[in-house]
């Protein structure tokens, strides 16, 4: 890690003296679609950077495989995740069951594969929801200042004080019973997390927007006569959003874990649905006799979270043109 650091410092010491860095980026482009190619250019350049980052490629690969697992689990594992024979109860990993068997003798590998769907759905949906709402409310708060800002910020602070798990317990225990279909439970769970999760995104965005809003290029854009929305979407948000990219990807894991803890408490998904959270909670009492029951879903959980974090970090770096030469 010290070498990139050294280069960064070198760049700093050398100041902005990079104008002779030679021709960068494609120069000849169609004249008609000039404006459009330019916007795409940023993404093309970003992709060019990302393509050469092994960590990004690995994490994207992991995310793709997991997504595929969630869509078509039967491609990865044969058999029914809920079917087991008690004779195999808590058997360790073997050629018959790569990840071993749980207390009911069900194949842990099959269950991990089938559990991906619930966990990833919660992770994806909550990230998308919290990020979108957080961005909208955060920028509205920063932009309006005054009473609207105060209302949004105070509501956010209030929601932020309640942990997801507690909120989930209250909402799920009042709105669902044991008979509620799993898809309804999942929807309510996702909505609850979104409602209680957006403030942390909004909060970070609000402060970065407040800083960016006073940037010189924003003043220049206003002087140029650009509309408020153009200034917001073209100048403020792109420059304010990079911390959000990282924060959001880091929180994917938190959402999946919330689902896990609620399932552990018996409030989340219930059989026949399978989720990693459920598996972790199921395995917890057998920590000593059947460690593998807990281990493998936890590993998948960790790998998923790590993959999202690394991908988000790489994306943020790639979208920052000052990292490019």
């Amino acid at each position: 890690m010290s070498e990139p650091l050294a280069e960064e410092m070198a760049a700093e010491v050398l100041g902005g003296q990079t104008d002779s860095a030679g021709p960068t980026g494609p120069v000849s482009r169609g004249e008609e679609e000039a404006s459009d190619t330019r916007t795409r250019g940023v993404w093309i350049d970003a992709w060019r950077v990302l393509r050469s980052k092994p960590l990004f490629l690995i994490s994207i690969g992991v995310i793709l495989i997991l997504t595929l697992m969630a869509i078509a689990p039967s491609w990865f594992a044969s058999g029914d995740p809920n079917q087991g024979s008690l004779s195999k109860s808590l058997q360790g990993p073997s050629s018959e069951g790569w990840f071993g068997f749980d207390v009911n003798g069900r194949n842990v590998y099959t269950r991990v594969v089938y559990g991906a769907r619930a966990s990833l759905t919660v992770g994806f949906a909550c990230t998308l929801g919290t990020t979108l709402i957080g961005i909208v409310l955060g920028s509205v708060a920063a932009y309006s200042s005054g009473p609207v800002d105060s209302v949004i910020s105070r509501i956010g602070d209030m929601l932020l004080g309640i942990p997801f798990a507690l909120a989930g317990i209250i909402v799920l225990s009042t709105l669902t019973t044991f008979d509620t279909p799993n898809w309804q439970v999942e929807t309510i769970l996702i909505l609850t997390i979104i409602v209680f999760g957006w403030p942390s995104i909004a909060r970070v965005l609000r402060s970065t927007v407040l800083v960016t809003r006073n940037a010189d290029y924003v003043v220049a854009g206003k002087a140029l006569g650009l509309s408020g929305s153009r200034v917001l979407f073209r100048h403020i948000l792109p420059n304010a959003i990079s911390p959000i990219l990282v924060l959001s990807t880091m929180r994917v894991g938190g959402y999946i874990a919330t689902e896990a803890s609620l399932s552990y408490l018996g409030l989340g998904l219930h059989p026949p649905a399978v989720s990693w959270g459920q598996m972790v909670s199921d395995g917890q009492p057998y920590l000593r006799t059947g460690f593998h029951v807990l281990l493998f879903p936890s590993i998948f959980l960790a790998i998923t979270i790590l993959a999202f974090v690394l991908a988000g970090e790489a994306l943020r770096e790639a979208l920052d043109p000052t990292n490019r030469r």
Partner: peptide, 11 residues
């Protein structure tokens, strides 16, 4: 000099 992996620059 500033030394990076790629080059040494005389400052």
């Amino acid at each position: 000099q500033i030394r990076t992996r790629r080059e040494s620059i005389d400052i």
